[in-house]
């Protein structure tokens, strides 16, 4: 067993874990944060995407011990404090960016990382940024629209606070 300490969605946790425990399983089964999904379990589909020290990663392809000492954000912690939803969550709702919703949390976590450094993306850039996230339902068009909606909203919110 190995001891890990991680900060997840702003809260510090310490646990003894088996070194072979995947980060996705740690989040879902130990912390009960089941918003992080496991679709393929083979690092392909992106439904397990979370932020590790601010960068998007696939939590099915990482060990929990590799995250020791790191800060993690999952979909449950994405909305800024004081708001119920992140602009991306609102955007997916507004633009019908989801059908079954299985891929959605991973899509949103990938898009959130992308928008941090690309606040004004083209459609092509959005499609390229979401290459690691598969959706079996929507055909992607409305996902792209949802990200565009969120980018616009985030710009407007920023203009208001500035």
């Amino acid at each position: 067993m190995a001891k890990i300490t991680v900060k997840v969605n702003g809260k510090v946790y310490s646990h003894e874990v088996e070194p072979r425990l995947l980060l996705a399983h740690y989040l879902r089964e130990v912390l009960s944060l089941t918003g992080t999904h496991i679709g393929c379990d083979t690092s392909s589909c992106g439904s397990c995407t979370i932020h590790l020290d601010g960068q998007s990663v696939k939590s099915c392809s990482m060990l929990a011990v590799q995250a020791d000492g790191c800060e993690i954000t999952t979909i449950e912690g994405l909305a800024p404090s004081g708001s119920e939803l992140h602009p991306l969550q609102e955007g997916f709702k507004e633009c019908h960016g989801l059908q079954c919703g299985f891929c959605t949390t991973g899509m949103i976590m990938s898009a959130a990382d992308f928008l941090q450094s690309n606040p004004d993306p083209s459609e092509e850039q959005i499609r390229h940024a979401l290459e690691g996230n598969f959706c079996r339902c929507t055909g992607y068009h409305n996902i792209v629209k949802s990200v565009q909606w969120a980018a616009q909203k985030m710009k407007e919110d920023k203009a208001v606070t500035a």
Binding site: S43, G46, T49, L52, Q55, S56, V57, K58, S61, M62, S110, D113, F114, A129, E131, G132, N133
Partner: peptide, 9 residues
């Protein structure tokens, strides 16, 4: 290479 998540690791 891969996708953004692969490139981060």
């Amino acid at each position: 290479i891969g996708d953004p998540m692969i490139r981060h690791k």
